[in-house]
Nucleic acid binder design. Sequence first.
DNA 1: CGACACATGTAACACGTTACATGATTTG
DNA 2: CAAATCATGTAACGTGTTACATGTGTCG
Lengths: 195, 195
Amino acid sequence: MSVKQALLALLEQEPMYGYQLRTEFEARTGSAWPLNVGQVYTTLTRLERDGLVEPAGADDEGHEIWRLTAAGHDEVAAWFTTPVARTQPPRDELAIKLALAVTVPGVDVGTLIQRQRSATMGALQDYTRLKRQADASTGRTDLAWSLVLDSLVFAAEAEIRWLDHCEARVRRVATESTPLIAPARFERDEQEAGR
Amino acid sequence: MSVKQALLALLEQEPMYGYQLRTEFEARTGSAWPLNVGQVYTTLTRLERDGLVEPAGADDEGHEIWRLTAAGHDEVAAWFTTPVARTQPPRDELAIKLALAVTVPGVDVGTLIQRQRSATMGALQDYTRLKRQADASTGRTDLAWSLVLDSLVFAAEAEIRWLDHCEARVRRVATESTPLIAPARFERDEQEAGR
DNA sequence: CGACACATGTAACACGTTACATGATTTG
DNA sequence: CAAATCATGTAACGTGTTACATGTGTCG
């Protein structure tokens, strides 16, 4: 879904040709999410099918230019005015993995969390390195790419915090449920209220 | 991709039938990411095609049971021991939207951020409400579902922080670049900020 | 000249989503 | 009995990914 909207948004700025769309997209997102050129063309075909873009002939150098239709402009406007729905967020593989790891017996949740933690830390370091590099290369930092990088950083930091949180909770459950089995269960609600 | 792995992981715990897989998946993730039953069956077919699961006949009530093959067990083990790759994270629609919003002229980034912020805040409140509800209903909180909820909360909080960060940066760029162009343009920027 | 970036496509495939069809069983 | 839930599928479609084919222009 994002690719369609992104191409439309780019065409809102100015009619372009396919290859250019790829270049512009990657320039703005700093190649954080590389976009296959082929997909640009297939997506353009589908957008034309849906009446959102239309061919506008060739430019001076013979490039096949695409422009938005009226419906395409409306679509872009709607996209920019409607917030991204958090009602049905995309499935988070890591959250699913951990949720299953704590329920499926025989999985070492501790090392799973540790491994993930260091992997995410590594990604975080890559981001900060990229950030330094981006700030150094161009005198004026590219705002869009910089914001995308920040987004990745914020998400990675949140992931690490969540992992630490999970580790603590899992450890607490492990140490707390073992002694619970033998003695009477009087204080069940007391212990739950503690967390 | 997550669905395939999730079904395999569930079958690692115990052989099950299709409908049961849906139920178990949603129980663990608290219906945060609803899973269409139909997809369970199509995915099972594809997993069988790939030699990861195999039919194991019917149980007492006539349900079609599926179990992991040896390759399926390996796949699960690999999934749980390999961290989720952050090298190519899934495209973040919000980050893309904002990156394009700041580069495409005529987009009111301020209200875009504000709208998104309140939408995400709303989602966050839903999560905390769900959290209270989950803790209240069952005496013993379901760990998996609780961790998933925490994940959503952490992500939403990070998103809000990022949005605030973006707002500040965008505003700074606006106030710092505007006087450079021409002092005469006061009114237009006032109007932009207003709407 | 040979390698590489530019430029446009196409075919095949994987995954996910929706909608529909069908029937058994349970429950108010 | 009617409605809801349980249970198993299938067909069609949308989006995204990969790989391939093809040709032009540029630069060392």
